[in-house]
Amino acid sequence: MTRRVLVGFFDDPHRLLEATRAVRGAGVEIDDVHTPFPVHGMDEAMGLAPTRLGIVCFLFGLTGGFVALMGQLWVHTVSWPVNIGGKSFSAIPALIPISFEVTVLFAALGTVFTFLFRASLFPGRAATRLFEGVTDDRFAVVIDGAVGPGRIDDARQIMVSHGAITTELTEVAE
């Protein structure tokens, strides 16, 4: 399955940002923007909702800390209680370093895997919608052809007036 899209190419992040704002201001939905590095202000310009990765990170961290602390307590009080100099079996302070490390481990790996899953990045995935030069020095604004031919023309005009170096209609994989 392929989809018809309009792609506007830019060579400058500031002109790109202004063009994106203007196209969206004219009521044309932005499908995506492809850039060689993160352009600040682009999330607002595209109207992206803030990511919830922070919540994911917190929950994974909480899980890690809980698992590590409970696991250690279980070992030292239930499964294999060893009397070390008459100290309490369930003294929490000595269990904190490992609980902390496992918290960080779970939070970091959990967040990274969630990111990879959400962005559908995985080893061996073919790079689709890879426009010429977007990993080097070119910036591409993509408008879905489904918005209609009139809207596509409007978007093309706005992008050209904001300094697009070229625009093209092309087919991309779904």
Binding site: D32, V33, H34, T35, P36, F37, P38, V39, M42, D43, M46, L48, T51, L53, G54, C57, G61, V104, A107, A108, T111, V112, F115, L116, R118, A119, S120, L121, F122, P123, G124, R125, A126, A127, T128, R129, L130, F131, V134, T135
Partner: peptide
């Protein structure tokens, strides 16, 4: 490099999450 770059295409939807991820990892590290 096609395998290890995980199909990256510079999409800003990905960059947006990527920047948050980088910040979180920095905060954890």
């Amino acid at each position: 490099f096609s395998i290890v770059s995980l199909g990256w295409n510079g999409s800003n939807r990905t960059w947006s999450r990527y920047e948050k991820l980088y910040l979180l990892l920095a905060g954890l590290s």
